[in-house]
Amino acid sequence: MAARGGVAVEERVGQVVLPGDVLVVPAHPDEDGERLRLGAPPAPHTRLLCGPGLRRCDAGLLVTKCGLLRHRQAAGGAYWVDSQQKRYVPIKGDHAIGIVTAKAGDVFKLDVGGSEQASLSYLAFEGATKRNRPNVQVGDLIYGQFVVANKDMEPEMVCVDSSGRSSGMGIIGQDGFLFKVSLGLIRKLLAPKSEIIQELSQLYPFEMVLGMNGRIWVKARTVQQTLIIVNILEACEYMTAEQRKQAFAKLSGN
């Protein structure tokens, strides 16, 4: 079977991999690569990063999720699996949109779509002090960042960066609309220079917040315009670039 044969990892980049597939990492990538990179000085030996959907095993890398294998050259290289998933698992450093479910003493409890509710201290807002508490109600939306997120602990969010600035985080306005898309689509939207976002921004002005947990908040000038964006983004899930351009052309014509 192809799976156990242990295919070299480079060969699979951009292809679909399934759990159980074993990918072989060349023992000394620099030595092998020397022949190809004629003249160029061999890159210093750096660590290879094994991203989501991959685990180390005896023979190399074991695939644990299905999806497309991706590779990034920078800093020793990184491999990961790009998979379509709906359920979010909090990861440290991720920005996410949470819904306030309870105010418990010094902390707010946020539903982020993960297995456990995240906690958010009322002091973790820009300019918040013991006296000056942020005005947060149950049911409000909060855009924040995970500072604690691992499998064994309750996830914890903050709405300030390391220098105490909000840098865009905090309570999201009362208007606008919240909806959910797959995690794969969110990553596509958050990619630098995402085509979808660029195409959307040419339609009309609107505000948007994208959470890594698949939640999107949108606010345009009118209800109608907001609804159009919601519907476009929901439809983007299974559209090729081609189909999407046609859909946009149709909309901008109207």
Partner: peptide, 10 residues
């Protein structure tokens, strides 16, 4: 998942 205030209002 709970319904947020903004969804309800919108």
């Amino acid at each position: 998942s709970p319904v947020s205030n903004c969804e309800r209002r919108f």
